[in-house]
């Protein structure tokens, strides 16, 4: 009898433990369903741009501002000071990038590590794919929080002759502080009119959509 009573008590306790909150998961899933209904094809929000003729080596070289526009808030990009360098490689045109993040609150001060990336092959039609190694950028350049960001990104875009812009689709993941997929994200390089003079508003993608003018809320104090 004692064992049976113990069993009933344990059954009751187990039921208590299981009956906590049956609706949180349902609410979470319901939102996903509603979001997907409103945005039936998230991946199409990124574009690699139109194909074109690749520039001659050296023509695209210079100082740029690089906007990494993550899909979770496209108008609040991570900004970088960028140098673009092109050269003729063994199998054709190659492009290399030198990146350093900008302080998200003044949008002009380079902060953190300098990344030398490339070279990456550029096809005759200007298309290229650049798979970057993990980039660790300081929290000062994070538009959302003070957390440092580590991201593994791949740029798929076009480098065109007689253009001051390089743009395309951004894929990969943010891996720190938490793992966030970047499907549907974009990137864009815009040549600077003068070295070190970064604009307040930057273009985010090949369509030319612009970033927010207002500073991120984390810069409020």
């Amino acid at each position: 009898m004692r064992l049976r009573n113990t069993f009933h008590a344990c059954t009751a306790l187990a039921a208590v433990a299981l009956l906590g909150c049956p609706n949180a998961e349902g609410e979470f899933n319901d939102f996903q369903d509603r979001y997907d209904a409103v945005h039936p094809d998230t991946a199409s929000s990124s574009s690699t741009g139109a194909s074109c003729a690749a520039p001659a080596a050296g023509d695209a070289d210079g100082d740029y501002v690089f906007a990494l526009s993550a899909s979770l808030d496209p108008a609040s990009p991570v900004r970088f000071a960028a140098k673009v360098a092109t050269s003729e490689g063994a199998s054709g045109l190659e492009v290399s990038f030198t990146l350093q993040a900008l302080d998200t609150c003044d949008r002009t001060t380079p902060v953190g590590e300098i990344f030398d990336l490339g070279p990456f092959a550029v096809a005759a039609d200007g298309s290229f794919t650049a798979a970057f190694p993990p980039l660790e950028v300081t929290g000062l350049s994070n538009p959302f929080s003070e957390n440092p960001i580590t991201a593994e990104v791949t740029l798929t875009g076009n480098l065109c002759a007689a253009s001051n812009t390089i743009c395309g689709a951004l894929g990969g993941n943010v891996t720190k502080p938490s793992v966030i997929k970047l499907d549907g994200s974009n990137f864009r390089f815009d040549r600077l009119e003068a070295t070190g003079e970064f604009p307040d508003v930057v273009a985010l993608n090949c369509a030319g959509d612009l970033s927010k003018t207002k500073l991120p809320s984390k810069c409020a104090k």
Partner: peptide, 8 residues
């Protein structure tokens, strides 16, 4: 769940 992506 941000911008159509489950994170993680």
């Amino acid at each position: 769940y941000f911008a159509g992506n489950l994170s993680g």
